[in-house]
Nucleic acid binder design. Structure first.
Length: 436
DNA sequence: TCTGGGGTCCTAGGACCC
DNA sequence: TCTGGGGTCCTAGGACCC
């Protein structure tokens, strides 16, 4: 048996934990660049569509009817870590599937127990982290995902659905759109619809060979999972990452190569920091840039990549390569919206095979330099020490006008609790400010 | 007017092997 | 006149996920 634990309105819930004044109020979290809505609290859902642009809800935000937050990834990652840690109390097998979801392996529980157990998980996570979650329980991961989806939809389930305890689970599947199934996206849904398969139940009962032929092994596995045969096992140990990407839209359209290069140098710096944090070296590096998809006229996108002589996570080396790639990828005369850098062919530090031909590099010295920079930036402030190629005053920087605090990861931004103690006769008043 | 970022997996097809 | 079978490796592109 599997449980899927899914955080409700995760990013919005994270913001609410540290703003108790927003309890019961509509909260949305914006994408990077304050572009569009990517998370909505339950109170916001009736008023704001997913992916609504900030522009389209700006009046409501100004009037204080909707509380908007810029994306605060550090906060969300840290809250996610807390949720996962809590879940580890409930099963030895926890697989973090995304920032706001985890599968739990549930062996040795009887079916009847599991609904109660789900409730216990739910209340504990809420109490320990402040994050509300829904729990779906079933014989396969695909069914557990559907169960969690239903648990969110029907309030009388109190956030937990154990699909195996239903008298007629097929009736539930018959009422669900096939597009709700894990692994069925927009394109596959259209393809299935054209074959007359519209509900989850129809997919469950579809002909295996036909599915295999049209949708490959993934499609077949999905059908089997719907029938209760597990095809996607628990994967408690995360597979090693194969790429690291940093990509951002610019605050406004950019035409100058010099601006693009600053942005690419900045993204490369971020990317190298990630690699060092993961203990990885990149063997291959790619720079891409493009105009806006939403302006059909004058479209352009290009990519250049390089195989590095020696795998590295040295910011200076990567910036040097990235600048050459950016120049090669750039064509004047376009309005650029976005640039991206991609590190691939990742190998763990220490497992790298030396190159037969490359000139030997004093990597130990370089490593110490990078370590010193990382330490300074962590202690002082991000980019306290940086490479000149990043530019001093970026004109292309992304917008982030509604940023909350990094409540849990920065000393200066940790929330304080104010306590006033008033004596009976009001003659003395003590006040404390204390760090949580 | 505005419309995100960061990933993984599978398949098809070409090149090549014996 | 017809000309095999079985396989690996690599890449690009398309699909999906959150």
């Amino acid at each position: 048996m599997f449980a899927l634990v899914d955080c409700n309105s995760f990013f919005a819930s994270c913001e609410k934990v540290f703003r108790p004044d927003l309890e019961g109020k509509p909260v949305v979290v914006l994408s990077n660049n304050d572009g569009c809505v990517v998370a909505r609290s339950p109170e916001a859902k009736p008023h704001v569509a997913m992916q609504a642009t900030l522009y389209s809800i700006q009046d409501l935000v100004r009037q204080g009817k909707i509380h908007a937050f810029s994306s605060n990834p550090m906060l969300y990652k840290d809250m996610s870590r807390r949720v996962i840690q809590t879940l580890q109390h409930f099963s030895p097998e926890v697989e973090q599937y995304s920032i706001d979801e985890a599968f739990l392996g549930l062996h040795g529980f009887t079916k009847a127990d599991l609904t109660d157990y789900g409730q216990k998980i739910r209340t504990t996570v809420k109490q320990w982290t402040g994050i509300p979650v829904s729990v779906g329980i079933a014989k396969t991961k695909t069914l557990a995902k559907l169960a969690a989806h239903e648990a969110k939809r029907y309030p009388d389930l109190n956030g937990v659905l154990n699909i195996e305890t239903l008298a007629d689970s097929d009736a539930v599947l018959a009422g669900l759109d096939v597009g709700e199934v894990w692994g069925i996206g927009r394109n596959l849904k259209a393809k299935l619809n054209s074959m007359g398969i519209k509900t989850v139940l129809q997919l469950k009962n579809a002909d295996e060979t036909r599915i295999k032929k049209k949708f490959g092994v993934l499609g077949l596995r999905t059908v089997l999972e719907l029938r209760g045969t597990p095809c996607f096992p628990m994967e408690p140990v995360a597979a090693p990452v194969t790429m690291r990407i940093v990509s951002r839209s610019f605050g406004h359209l950019v035409t100058e190569l010099s601006d693009i290069k600053e942005a690419v140098a900045t993204y490369t710096t971020r990317c190298a920091e990630k690699l060092r944090a993961d203990g990885l070296l990149a063997g291959h590096f790619t720079v891409t840039m493009r105009t806006s998809y939403y302006r059909p006229e004058n479209q352009y996108s290009s990519a250049r990549s390089v195989a590095l002589d020696q795998p590295t996570n040295d910011t200076a080396v990567l910036i040097h390569e990235a600048m050459k790639l950016a120049e090669a990828a750039f064509t004047p005369g376009y309005e650029y919206l976005k640039a991206k850098v991609i590190a691939t062919e990742l190998t763990p530090v220490g497992e790298v095979q030396g190159s037969l031909f490359a000139a030997p590099v004093d990597t130990e010295k370089r490593d110490r330099l990078m370590q010193a920079m990382d330490n300074l930036n962590r202690k002082l402030s991000p980019d306290a020490v940086k490479f000149g190629a990043m530019g001093l005053k970026p004109t292309w920087a992304m917008r982030s006008d509604y940023f909350s605090q990094r409540y849990t990861t920065h000393w200066a931004e940790i929330p304080t609790v104010k306590v006033w103690q008033t004596t009976r006769n009001q003659s003395t008043r003590l006040s404390y400010e204390t760090v949580l």
